[in-house]
């Protein structure tokens, strides 16, 4: 069952909150370079699944293998060092820092040397230059010195993604990156993600079905914590069970 080539294996993952089963024996295999989408109705347990992979929640049972290491019991920091990065469904930034400082801190997190207490980090080209490049790449050029709290919502989402990318991850967990975005911003983000495809392995949780079907190599459909299907976009579109359980409501 396990494909040895996969970057991320999730095997039999389960998580209960009291009587509620949020994740039910979930299996997930993501190959290097793949953009894998995780979809499902509200409350299907997508965010819970991502939180377990990222290390913010401990699963009740099951195993997570990432890049050849069993990381099920690892703390977040260790997973990040191994190349796992995530963005949040609800924007999570350092609000008083400027956009550039936010990304520079992410670069710093990847580089280390955070105990250096003398040199001015605001004038350190090894932090500032990569950070500027990421801001540019994500369409935030010229917004360097604006405090994150004062950026527009769409810009904050872009910044969030820039921070995740700046840690140079091998696997990117994107939890609804388009949540609350206008259609113009969404289109920009879709083309951006398309440009990242292939260079990064991405697990994308998203409600925007246009985005999902435009980007994903494979799609896993989650209902009540259970994966009811995992296939290519065409096959998912054709899947009768998925249509009745989920997509049918949305006239895909």
């Amino acid at each position: 069952m396990a494909e040895p080539a996969a970057l991320l294996h999730v095997e039999g993952l389960s998580k209960h909150f009291g009587a509620v089963t949020a994740t039910d024996n979930l299996n997930l295999h993501i190959a290097p370079g793949e953009l894998h989408a995780l979809i499902g109705p509200n409350g299907a347990g997508k965010t819970t699944a991502v939180a377990q992979i990222a290390g913010e929640l401990r699963p009740d049972s099951g195993q997570i293998v990432f890049a050849g290491h069993t990381i099920t019991d690892w703390p977040i920091q260790r997973r990040v060092k191994l190349g796992l990065a995530r963005s949040y469904q609800i924007t999570s930034l350092f609000p008083q820092f400027t956009a550039l400082d936010n990304v520079a801190l992410a670069v710093q997190a990847h580089q280390g040397h955070s105990l250096r207490a003398w040199r001015n980090a605001h004038r350190d080209p090894r932090l500032r230059e990569p950070a500027r490049l990421w801001l540019e790449k994500l369409g935030l050029a010229g917004r360097d010195e604006i405090p994150a709290a004062e950026l527009a919502h769409g810009e904050q989402r872009q910044l969030e993604l820039a921070m995740a990318l700046a840690t140079n991850p091998r696997l990117l967990l994107l939890d609804e990156p388009m949540a609350g975005m206008g259609s113009e911003d969404s289109q920009r983000l879709i083309s951006l993600l398309r440009s990242l495809k292939g260079d990064y392995t991405i697990l994308l949780v998203e409600h925007d079905m246009d985005a999902v079907f435009a980007l994903a190599d494979r799609i896993t459909v989650l209902v009540y914590g259970q994966a009811i299907a995992c296939d290519t976009p065409q096959a998912i579109r054709a899947n009768e069970q998925v249509r009745t359980a989920y997509l049918g409501e949305q006239d895909v």
């Binding site: 990222a54 913010e56 990040v80 350092f94 801190l105 840690t167």
Partner: peptide, 16 residues
Amino acid sequence: RASKQNERRLRALGIN
């Protein structure tokens, strides 16, 4: 300063 503003995010960046 980051840890004061948003500790959870800092941890997600890999810094304890």
